[in-house]
Structures are given as structure tokens and as C-alpha cells.
Amino acid sequence: MHRSPVIWFFSLAFVLSWAAWTPYVLSENGLGVWQFAFPTTGGSTQLFGVLPGAYLGPIVSALLVTGVTEGRAGLRAWRGRMTKFRVNWRWYAVVLLSVPAALIIASSALGDRGPAMPPAVVLAAFLPGLLLQMVTTGLAEEPGWREFAMPRLQHRYGPLAATVVVGPLWGVWHLPLFLTEWGGYPDVNGLHVLKFVVTAIAFSFVMTWVFNRSGGSMPLVMLLHCGINNYFSVLSLDMFPWLSKEATSNAFLLSAVTAALVLLVATRGRLGCPPASGDGALDAPVDVRMS
């Protein structure tokens, strides 16, 4: 584990999550092998079916490997990075506004018409929903993918290669869930899974850029990730009720690929990572001012 902490992290994240998701996959909410259905909360089985595996995977694996390889000092440093809220307020504004804006533009383009005005109760639920997503999805996943794996891989291989590794693994990690109602089973095929993984890869370039430009602020990275989930959970259906589920996912794919290409060209592949003396490592703190 000391010699290969990143390999251990990814291995544990997959094993722990996939093992915890096995009952969900085999239940009536999935393949139907077991005559058992997970309880529904808020119209979804995500709380009891998906979140246990999400929490047992990335965050537990990151904490375990950090504790074994770096001890209490490493865990204290991890806590400091996880609570790095002091970032220029404009970064929070950009993340909060750009995510729904990009998805609305992409959905409008694919639907050949602008969005409908959602009811006031839906707008009122946007921020509470975002906070809930931060505690669930954001806290479960990003302490592993972006806080643990990304900086270590980036330090050794540079931002572009690190993203090419983390992005596909992040997407593939979700594969068992496509055998459940979370992934649309049984109305799901290989093309749906492929598009999801490609979207995860493209969006990872955006995540890497925000991570680097914000000086490694995990709350901001989590906010970016959760902004996507919250948009689809709260706003999407009311703003674009005429779009199919596939068209909605295509809007995310379109916006993620477009943003990734723009950032790759604009940063010449650096993705916000400052110049380094060697292989592209993140050798110095990143300036968190908007520029």
C-alpha cells in the first residue's frame, strides 16, 4: 500500500462499492433475482440502494489508504483540504450559475425551443437540494476521485494524463448501477453506458480545471459535481418536460464535451495546473483569484 497507494485506492473503491451494490442489483429494483425491494424515499431508492455503496467506496478507501500510508498527519492534512472554503466568492458564483446555464443552453439546442418557467416551489427547492447533494453524492465521491487520486496522479504524470485515468475509472465505477432502476434497467443498452462513460471523461476535464484553478478547494469541486445532479433532480423535468430521458443525458454529454474542448484549447492542456520543473506536477499553490 505504501508503494502503490493510488492502485490500492482504486481497487478498494471498486471492490467496496460493487460489493455493497450487489444486493441492490439482485433485488427487485434491479435484476429481480431476490424477492426484495429497497424502500423508497422521496420517490427514489437511491438513499438505501445507491448511497451505501457510494460511501463505502471512494471516501472510505481514501481515508483508509491515507491513514495507513500517512498516519494522523495525513488525515489532518486531508481534513484541511476538505474544508478549504476560503476561495474567492466569484468562483462560487461561476460554479453555481455556469452549470445550470450550460445544461439549459444544451437542452434548448437539442429541443429546438427554450425552457419553460419552473414553478416557484421548484425554484425554492434548488438550493436546499444542492446542499443535500453536497452531503450525499459530493461527500461520498469527490474525497476519493478528486481529493485523493487526482493530485497524486497529476503530480507524477501531469494534469492531462491524470484526468484521462481518473475520468474513465470514475465512469466505469458506476457500471453495476446500470443493472438497476438508477441506470434505467431494463431499458438500457451498451450505447447508454458508453455515453455515460464518455460524459464522465469529458466532465472530468472541467473538474480538473476547477480543482487546479481554485487551489484544490474540495468544497468547490463538490459543488460543481453536485450542481449537475441537482439540476437533473430538481430543474430539468419542469424546464424541459418535452425532452426524453435520452435527450436530457445527451444535453449533459454535449455541454461536457464542449466545455472540455474549450478548456483544453484555452489552457493548452494545462487545465489550470501551474508550470512545473519536471513532469507537469502541481508544485506550487494555485492562485485562487479570478483571472
Score class of each variant (00 low, 15 high):
residue 286 V to S: 15
residue 259 A to D: 01
residue 236 S to V: 03
residue 157 Y to G: 00
residue 61 S to P: 07
residue 88 N to G: 11
residue 191 L to C: 07
residue 52 P to Y: 06
residue 156 R to L: 09
residue 192 H to T: 12
residue 65 V to Q: 01
residue 21 W to C: 10
residue 83 T to Y: 04
residue 286 V to C: 15
residue 75 L to E: 03
residue 182 W to Q: 10
residue 154 Q to Y: 01
residue 188 V to D: 05
residue 135 V to F: 11
residue 43 G to I: 01
residue 85 F to V: 10
residue 114 G to L: 14
residue 236 S to H: 13
residue 83 T to W: 09
residue 256 A to H: 03
residue 251 A to M: 07
residue 26 L to T: 03
residue 85 F to Q: 11
residue 242 W to D: 15
residue 212 N to C: 04
residue 225 H to C: 06
residue 113 R to T: 14
residue 97 L to T: 13
residue 207 M to D: 03
residue 70 E to L: 07
residue 195 K to F: 14
residue 287 D to Y: 05
residue 196 F to A: 05
residue 246 E to S: 13
residue 27 S to D: 05
residue 46 Q to L: 13
residue 230 N to A: 10
residue 276 A to V: 00
residue 260 A to C: 08
residue 105 I to T: 12
residue 272 G to S: 11
residue 22 T to I: 00
residue 26 L to P: 01
residue 97 L to Q: 01
residue 111 G to R: 02
residue 59 I to C: 11
residue 267 T to F: 08
residue 284 A to S: 13
residue 261 L to D: 01
residue 258 T to P: 00
residue 88 N to Y: 12
residue 33 V to R: 11
residue 30 G to R: 00
residue 18 W to C: 08
residue 66 T to Y: 10
residue 179 L to K: 03
residue 131 L to R: 02
residue 32 G to V: 10
residue 196 F to M: 03
residue 105 I to E: 06
residue 199 T to M: 13
residue 33 V to Q: 12
residue 279 D to Q: 15
residue 283 D to S: 15
residue 140 A to C: 10
residue 87 V to D: 04
residue 4 S to I: 02
residue 111 G to L: 02
residue 167 G to T: 04
residue 236 S to N: 13
residue 217 S to Y: 07
residue 236 S to C: 06
residue 18 W to P: 02
